[in-house]
Amino acid sequence: MAASKTATLTFRIDPALKEALRLAANLEHRSIANMVEVLIRDYCEQRGIEIPPSDEAENNSGVRS
C-alpha cells in the first residue's frame, strides 16, 4: 500500500495560541502538526462534518498528479 500524500498548510497564529498548542501537543506526546490534525478531526466529528478519504479529497480538489 502506497503512503498517502500530505498537504502543506502555512498560517499565522498569535504567539500565545502557538504556545498553548505546543503545551497541548507535549501533554499528548504529539508533534504540533499532529495535534492540529487531531483538533481538526475532533472538531469535524463533533459537528458532523465528514472527512473524505485522502484519495477522494484529491480527486475533488481539481488537482491531478
Rank of each mutant, 00 (worst) to 15 (best):
V63R: 03
V63H: 02
S65G: 10
T6M: 12
A57P: 08
E28I: 04
D55W: 04
S31D: 01
N26I: 04
I49S: 02
E50T: 07
L27H: 11
R47C: 02
R30S: 03
C44A: 10
E28K: 06
P52N: 05
V36D: 01
R47E: 09
E37F: 06
R30V: 02
Y43G: 13
A33D: 01
I51E: 02
A2K: 07
G48T: 03
E28G: 14
F11I: 06
A20R: 11
L23D: 01
S4K: 06
I49D: 02
H29D: 12
A25I: 10
E45I: 04
S65Y: 13
G62Q: 13
V63I: 11
L21Y: 00
I13P: 12
I13F: 13
N60H: 14
L23T: 04
M1S: 09
V38C: 03
Y43F: 15
E37K: 09
N34Y: 06
R30E: 01
R12V: 08
R22D: 00
R64S: 12
E45A: 10
L39K: 00
N26Q: 15
A3M: 07
A24D: 11
N60E: 15
A33Q: 01
P53I: 07
T10D: 12
S4P: 05
N59P: 12
R41N: 07
A7V: 14
L27I: 12
P53N: 08
A7F: 10
G48V: 04
I40M: 13
S4M: 06
E37M: 08
L21G: 00
S31T: 13
S65T: 13
I49E: 05
L21N: 00
E56W: 03
N59S: 15
T10I: 11
P53W: 00
A25D: 05
S31I: 00
I13D: 10
E45T: 10
L39P: 00
A20C: 04
H29M: 07
I49N: 05
C44M: 14
A16P: 07
V36N: 02
A3W: 09
A57H: 01
A24S: 10
N34M: 09
I49K: 07
Y43V: 11
P52G: 03
D55C: 00
T10C: 11
I13A: 14
N26K: 14
I32Q: 08
R47H: 13
A2G: 07
R41M: 03
D42Q: 15
P15G: 05
L27S: 09
E56S: 03
E37Q: 09
Q46T: 15
L39E: 02
S61N: 14
E19F: 04
F11G: 05
R64Q: 12
M1D: 04
V36H: 06
A3H: 09
L27Y: 12
S54G: 14
E50C: 02
M1Q: 05
L21R: 01
P53G: 02
A24E: 09
V38T: 01
A7K: 13
M35K: 04
N59R: 15
C44I: 10
L39I: 03
S4Y: 08
D42N: 14
A7I: 11
L17V: 04
L17I: 01
V63A: 05
A33Y: 00
P15T: 06
L17D: 12
E19C: 04
